[in-house]
Design a protein around this nucleic acid. Sequence first.
DNA 1: AGGAATTTGTGCGTATGTATC
DNA 2: AGATACATACGCACAAATTCC
Lengths: 235, 235
Amino acid sequence: MLSASVSLPVYLQISELLTREIAAGLYAAGDRLPPEAELAKTLGVAVGTLRKALSELELRGMLARRQGSGTYVLPAGMGQSKSVYEFFKLELIRGGGLPTARVIDFQKIATPAAFQTDLSKHCYRLRRLRLLSDTPIALEEIYFDAQSHPHLKAADLGEALYWFYQERLGFWIASAEDRVGVGVVPDWSVQDFAPAVASVCARVERVSRTSKNKIAEYSITWFDAKRCRYVNRLK
Amino acid sequence: MLSASVSLPVYLQISELLTREIAAGLYAAGDRLPPEAELAKTLGVAVGTLRKALSELELRGMLARRQGSGTYVLPAGMGQSKSVYEFFKLELIRGGGLPTARVIDFQKIATPAAFQTDLSKHCYRLRRLRLLSDTPIALEEIYFDAQSHPHLKAADLGEALYWFYQERLGFWIASAEDRVGVGVVPDWSVQDFAPAVASVCARVERVSRTSKNKIAEYSITWFDAKRCRYVNRLK
DNA sequence: AGGAATTTGTGCGTATGTATC
DNA sequence: AGATACATACGCACAAATTCC
């Protein structure tokens, strides 16, 4: 079950396993997990490896660990349960709208020079059309590392990409930096997406980072400024 | 020097030590630290212990670690200190820039219809040219209520408007909401501000609120997307 | 182009300290 | 006081990525 060579590191496989087991209700909020030594033995890993997995989940706010006492399951979403759409910042000018996405293209490519300092040699490039309440409002181009999962297909991706990152790639987006300016619609644009004039197309560059401050993805979004806006709530 | 029993765990002592050394300039941003094995030896600890210390600093965003390459010092994060410019989101494309402002016009006017639900009958309208390191990059139009101070003149305003609000008007900005899109440069534009073409002008609408959730000001900013961008750091 | 050397990442096992029960 | 459980620390072996010759 737990194999090192196939895909994810063992300690991440364990985080995922425990995440699923907690989600499935095998451990409820408030429960104490078995002691490290015991859990490590049943999982067939060294204690140190298990500890690394548990630390991950503690950092994520799923577990609380108390020396001398034990490891406890925390109630879901104590300020943690971030919506998958938390980082989606586009809004129809008339307000609201339910975000969806349609894949235009998905390929594994050689990492472009601009990203080579932060991504490994190969990365995935995902191109999507974004919609708000069925209105096409933006084109999106996303680059993320191919290293951990070298053989992804378009079908493996769900609509909620950040959820996919967490479940399948073992990391989650903790922060991002957006740069909003103006741009020209890319040449791979589709018929559905047609800003009235080139002059009303805005452009967002995003760098997303994981909780470890590593770069998780680069993305560029072109949006039709006639129909929607980039919204930012500052506190 | 590094003692376990006295106070902090050794790995934390090391994090602190390295933090001080980086702050002191012994290691500059971009520098590579000595390899783990070497550093551990000079510090007289096991590699695992050192690694834990380095992981701490990586998590804090002070270091970046790259497998096969080394451990690097990152530039000091600017996310820490809050300033009057905390809500100023424009940045030169080439990076950074010191924000200043030049008043173009300041008048007391009848409140425009669009703001009448939130501002009283009269308000001030301030028009400014914004600069980053002496480069004109944006026009700004700000509306705020005239009720509390009915007789302001342009000379009463400082460059740092938010500071002025707090000192003279008795409130401070606690939150804001920005909507970024694309727009046309207003007719009161000045010679200094000349985006190459209309197509590279972006537009930010802002609603700022006080700590009591009352609307403090409305503003519109037109910025030259060729020279600068709207930057948003999300956590 | 390719291979060796370097450097961090992962994983194992163990011993000891310290907080809790 | 004793048992239990997590925290810290040490050391080693190998994998994976990068760098350099």
